[in-house]
Write a protein that binds this DNA or RNA. Structure first.
Ligand SMILES: [Mn+2]
Ligand SMILES: [Mn+2]
Ligand SMILES: [Zn+2]
Ligand SMILES: [Zn+2]
Lengths: 140, 140
DNA sequence: AATTAATTTAGAAATATTCTAAAATGTTTT
DNA sequence: AAAACATTTTAGAATATTTCTAAATTAATT
């Protein structure tokens, strides 16, 4: 019976995160996690939900994306002013960013070495290291 | 005679960038470049200008920051949604970002090594490599 | 079924940034 | 130095993203 596994998968994620499995969260989790990894904005996800005839407000999409992020199910990626991407790939990795079209592409964590940087200042710890390789169209 | 050198310095920058030395640009250039390197937002710079009794609109501050950036006099740094910093340090360097208070601190380019990353996809060239080391308050 | 707690929502608000077109200023030509 | 021309500045509106508020709904527990 096709169609139940995706629900199961999304349900597992919510339980793992300690979040109540509401209709909206289940639907958003399915949209987010039942496909290949991706980088999506709140508005894009809301549009996808509307498109899939899931009734959910934009406020709830924002709330849910932040809850998922806090729970470690998503990662927020900021590369441009006034636009936040939410990344379904939560493994240690980095990004190519195409300045032309705003696309993001993953770079596996193992394939970048960040070495020699100074120790974190006293009273702080390194929460994350982000490497963004900004790409421009090749000149003619 | 103190007070003329700063004008000369700012004037040089504008000429180097091929920008007309208007009252507003000169004043903003002095505020930006006649002190130690820093990371400043458009609103902060506008507030400083108002404070220094320089009459300039917020729109002009944005225009000028972008012109300076395009001319290579500034660098835009994006680390948080809905907030752009302009960096008077245009040398090749990276950043510590304190998630607690939104502060940025430079890391000299030579003290970070980014190695082994994949080649830029066909049709693109690497415009810049940004390394952001995100710091959180040390846990108790 | 009643109680309690968590969630969703519409709409307003806050924030950041860009746009528009008119006024002002700077530059070049005569 | 006036006239002509080009650039810049500006107020205010517009756009865009994100957050907030408080009321309505839904879920979980008793
Ligand atoms: Mn968006
Ligand atoms: Mn700001
Ligand atoms: Zn990613
Ligand atoms: Zn810097």
């Amino acid at each position: 019976m096709t169609g139940t596994r995706p629900f199961k998968h999304a349900l597992d994620r919510l339980q793992q995160a300690g979040l109540r499995p509401t209709r909206q969260r289940l639907a958003l989790a399915r949209l987010l996690f039942d496909k290949v990894d991706r980088h999506i904005t709140a508005e894009q996800l809301h549009a996808e939900a509307v498109d899939a005839e899931v009734q959910v407000s934009l406020a709830t999409v924002y709330n849910t994306l932040h809850q998922f992020t806090d729970a470690g199910l998503l990662r927020e990626v900021v590369v441009e002013a006034g636009r936040s991407y939410f990344d379904t790939n939560t493994s240690d990795h980095h990004h190519f960013f195409f300045e032309g079209n705003g696309n993001l592409q993953d770079i596996p964590g193992e394939s970048v070495t960040v070495a020699h940087f100074p120790a974190a200042p006293a009273g702080t710890r390194v929460a994350r290291v982000d490497v963004i390789i900004r790409l421009a169209p090749e000149e003619a």
